[in-house]
Amino acid sequence: MLRIDNLCKSFDGKEVIKGLSISFPQSGFVAICGPSGCGKSTLLHIIAGIEKPSSGQIVFDDRSHSISMSFQEPRLLPDRTALQNVNFVLGDKKATLSRAKELLWALDIRNVDLYPEELSGGMKARVSIARALAKKADIYIFDEPFANLDKETALTCVDVIKKETAGALTIAVLHDTELAEKISDKVIYFK
């Protein structure tokens, strides 16, 4: 479904990704682990279309693929509530508010009317996860989604993510290799 062929990416002459080739399965949970600065987030950005590769290519088997993403930083709209932030990707309609609320509740965000500045780091991360799950996609990308969460909350989030992304491909950059091995169908290690 998703194949990366001999991908290279440089920033200001500095090579971050060099000749990377990976084949991802059609569905399942794939974790990417590795030290800081090895190009994990850059790869996710290239898959999501935010960055362009310097050379090499990304091949999607399906021509019409859709991607949803949870960024390393939550990137929430500052003047919208947690609920409104999730509903934003559902078209900001009244009819979709219940779906947005359902996802937030599943991730244990009960006070959905709080603004981003009133949320803790962990709560912001979960709102960002809920927003990514709100959009129906073929590929879900999570960039260090559990960085601000304790293990118990992280495992709750994993359950919700797996339930909501069933049948799709989920790619997550994780810094906790133990957790990655435990929850993933496949773990890719970057050097």
Binding site: A48, G49, I50, S66, I67, S68, M69, F71, E73, R75, L77, P78, D79, R80, F88, V89, G91, D92, R131, K135
Partner: peptide
């Protein structure tokens, strides 16, 4: 820019982008 990037990934319509990102 990071909010605009986010809205691009989610395929947000330009009307919603103007309303929720640019105008605020």
């Amino acid at each position: 820019k990071e909010l605009l990037q986010m809205s691009d990934v989610f395929g947000i319509s330009w009307i919603l982008k103007i309303k929720r990102i640019y105008i605020p």
